[in-house]
Design a protein around this nucleic acid. Structure first.
Lengths: 385, 385
DNA sequence: CTGAAAGCGCTTACAG
DNA sequence: CTGAAAGCGCTTACAG
C-alpha cells in the first residue's frame, strides 16, 4: 500500500512484460518533493544545466554559479530569484564539471589494510561511521579502498589524487610496517593517519590517547591490588600499540614489580591470537592475577581460553580490554575496558582532512581522550590463603 | 629500515621541524616504479595532460585518447609509440574530464540501510568485499552511502546519478518496507537489489536461493527425526525472508506436523532478538526439539538463551542457522548452518551492474545456490524414554 | 588510420 | 553587483 503513492520522478514507458499492478491510480503525476514545490503541470525537463537556469532566470551562467557557491558578491535579490529558478527546474549541478573547473572532487577516500574482514570489523566500522556521518554533513562523499599489495605497487594510492578521484585520504589500521605511507610525506596530498602515528616521516594524524588509556587500565588493576600482571599486546610496529606496552612496563616498574618479556605475549589483535597468548602466559606464570589486553577481541579470546582451562574470570584472573566495542558489552562476564572514542575519532579525522584540503590547517596532530569502563571482568586480587 | 629505500615520487622541501632521519641516502631520486621504466634523470613534470602526451608523441590528442580507450582503429605502431610516451611522462588521465566527456564516472555506490552497525556487520562486510574486489578488477571505484531517512527525503539517492557521482547503485539490506526503492523502477538508473527481491515494482536483483537453503535445512532436521520444529524468522517485509518461512511451513505441512504462529517468533535478525524469540518458543512449546533460525546471529542468541535456561544444544534442541559467517565457525557448539555465497553474491551483483550500465544486459534476476554446512548444533531427535 | 574542432558543464579571473 | 570569455582535460563525431 505504502508504495502506491510513492514518489517517482520520470516514469518510463512500462516494461514490455507489462508487470504493472492492476490498480495504479490514474493521476500518476507525482513529482519528487523537492526543496520548493515545483509547478505540478510541468513535465520534468530533461537534464537541465546551468545555462538553462541562467536563461530562465535572466542572468548569466557566472551569476548562477556564484549563487550555487554562495558567493557573497551576489545581491540578495538575484540570489533569491536564481535560487527559486534552480528549485523550479530541479537543477542539480554536475559534479564532474564542477570538479574539473574547481579542482575539488568533494570525495574522500578511506583506505583500509588488506585484512580479510576489514570491511566487517567493529573497530573499523565505528570509525568509518563517524567519517561517513561527518563527510555527509560537510557535503562530501566517501570512497573505500583496501590497500592490497598490488594496489600499492601500481601506485594507485597516489593515482587516487592524480586522476582526481578524491581530494584526500584517511588511512585506518596501518602502522610503520606499511612503508608506502611515506609516499604521503611532504604534504603533496592531504592524508591523515587515523588512530596511529608514523615515525619515519612526520605525517598528519589523529589518534586515541593510548597512553592515557593504558594508565587508566593500570590504575584500575593496581588499585585492585594486582601485582602479577601480564599483557597481551599486538602489532609492535604500531606506535600507539607500543604506547600501551610502555605504560604497562613503567607502571609496574614504579612499584617494583617484575617486568620482562615472559609476561608479554603477542595476540595479533585477534580472538584466537588472544586465546593462544593467554594460554602461553598462564603456563609461564601460573601465579598471574591480571591481564591487560590491547583490544577487546583479544580480551575475549583470553577469557574463553582461560575458562576452558578451568580458570574463572574475574575470580581467578582479572581482564581489562581496549576499545569498548558495542556488541561485546553483552559478553559474559562483561568486559572492563578502556573506551576508545572511535566514532568521534572518525568525525574528527574527517573534519581535519577537509580543513587540510581547504588549506585551513597546516599540521594535524590530535589526540583524543579515553576513559575506563568498569564492568565485570575485573575484581580485587585474591588474598593469598 | 625497510622504509629507507622506499619509493617517493615528488619530494617536497623538508618540513620546517626538520624531523628527518640522520642518514637518508644521498641519491634520493627514486621514482615510483611505473608500468615501464621512466628515464631516471628527468624530474617528474608537473601535471602532465593529454595535450603534453600528444605533443611529445607527435600525434593529436584524439589519437592519445583513442590509445587510452584501446580504440582498435589505432595502428599497432602509433599505439605502441603513444603508450611509451604515456609511461615515460607518467601521464594519468583525469577522471573528471573523462567523465564529463564520456558520461561515465566509473564509480559505483553501495547503499546500506541506516542500521547502527551496518558498516561493521559481517553479513554486509562479506558482500561488500566481493563488490569491492570485482569493482577494482573492472576499473571501478566504490562509494558507500547509508540511506538515512533524511538522505532519501532529500532525493539524494537519485542525486547520486543526476549529479554524476556514480554510474550505478547496489542496494544491500533493504526490503519492501523501503518504498523509496520504487524510485529506481523504470530503468532510468542502473540499480541492482542485492540478496532480495522487490514485489511492488520489477526491480533487478541478485539473491541467494533462500528456498533451496530452507529446504536443505529442513531436510537435515527432518532426516534427524525432528517433528516439533520452531522457526525464528525476521523481516516479514523481506521476500527472501518469507521464502524461508514458506518452505518451513510447507515441509512441515507435508509430513502432517502442526504448523501455526505459536511455533514462530520474530528475532529481528539480532543476537538479542534471537535469544528472546528462543525463550518465547520454548515457553510456548516445552516439547520443541529443533529450531530453524533466519540467520546465524539469531541462532547464536538462541543457543545462548537456551543454555542459560539449562537446555543443552544439540542434546535437547537442535539449531540450524543461515549465513555461515566466518567468525562464528568457532562458536561452541559450532553451528550447523545454511551457507550463503555472500562474497560471490557481491561479485555477481557488481558484474551485472556494470553490464547493465554498459547496456549489455536488459533485466537482471539471478539466484545463487546455497548448501548446508553440518556442524555440531544439530543431532538426532531424542528418543522418548 | 589520423587530425581539427566542437562540446561536455561547470568556475574563475577580468572588466565594467 | 553582474556579464562575457577563457579554460579545466578529456571524448566524439566528422572529415579526409
Amino acid at each position: 500500500m505504502a508504495s502506491k503513492g510513492k514518489v517517482k520522478n520520470k516514469i518510463a514507458s512500462p516494461p514490455e512484460s507489462a508487470d504493472l499492478q492492476g490498480s495504479l491510480p490514474a493521476s500518476n503525476q507525482n513529482i519528487t518533493i523537492r526543496f520548493d514545490s515545483p509547478l505540478p503541470d510541468e513535465k520534468p525537463p530533461e537534464k537541465v544545466n546551468i545555462r538553462d537556469v541562467a536563461r530562465e532566470a535572466g542572468v548569466s551562467v557566472a551569476t548562477v554559479s556564484m549563487v550555487l557557491n554562495e558567493n557573497p558578491r551576489i545581491s540578495r535579490g538575484t540570489q533569491v530569484r536564481v535560487q527559486k529558478m534552480i528549485e523550479r527546474l530541479g537543477y542539480r549541478p554536475n559534479r564532474l564539471a564542477q570538479g574539473l573547473s574547481s579542482k575539488y572532487t568533494q570525495v574522500l577516500a578511506v583506505m583500509l589494510p588488506p585484512l580479510r574482514h576489514a570491511l566487517a570489523d567493529a573497530y573499523f566500522g565505528e570509525i568509518i561511521s563517524g567519517i561517513a556521518d561527518r563527510a555527509g554533513k560537510l557535503g562530501h562523499k566517501m570512497m573505500i579502498e583496501q590497500a592490497k599489495p598490488q594496489f600499492i605497487k601500481e601506485g594507485r594510492h597516489i593515482e587516487l589524487y592524480e586522476r582526481r578521484f578524491v581530494d584526500g585520504i584517511l588511512c585506518l589500521g596501518f602502522n610503520e610496517k606499511h612503508t608506502f605511507l611515506a609516499d604521503f610525506a611532504g604534504a603533496q596530498y592531504p592524508m591523515i593517519l587515523v588512530d596511529n602515528r608514523f615515525g619515519p616521516q612526520p605525517l598528519d594524524y589523529v589518534h586515541c590517547d593510548y597512553r592515557l588509556g593504558a594508565n587508566q587500565a593500570m590504575n584500575c588493576l593496581l588499585q585492585l591490588g594486582h601485582r602479577a600482571v601480564g599483557i597481551i599486546y599486538a602489532a609492535p610496529e604500531s606506535p600507539t600499540a607500543r604506547d600501551v606496552v610502555d605504560v604497562y612496563k613503567s607502571r609496574l616498574g614504579e612499584i617494583g614489580a617484575t617486568v620482562d618479556d615472559s609476561w608479554m605475549a603477542d595476540g595479533r589483535f585477534t580472538d584466537e591470537g588472544g586465546a593462544a597468548a593467554a594460554r602461553d602466559l598462564i603456563s609461564r606464570h601460573p601465579d598471574i592475577t591480571a591481564l591487560l589486553c590491547g583490544n577487546d577481541k583479544m580480551a575475549l579470546g583470553a577469557i574463553r581460553a582461560l575458562s576452558q582451562q578451568g580458570y574463572q574470570v574475574p575470580r581467578d584472573i582479572s581482564i581489562v580490554g581496549f576499545d569498548d566495542l558495542q556488541h561485546l558489552a553483552f559478553a559474559n562476564p562483561s568486559l572492563t575496558t578502556v573506551h576508545l572514542p572511535l566514532y568521534e575519532l572518525g568525525v574528527t579525522a574527517c573534519e581535519r582532512l577537509i580543513e587540510k584540503i581547504r588549506g585551513k590547517v597546516e599540521r594535524v596532530a590530535e589526540i583524543l581522550p579515553t576513559h575506563l569502563v568498569l564492568r565485570e571482568s575485573t575484581t580485587m586480587v585474591r588474598q593469598p590463603n
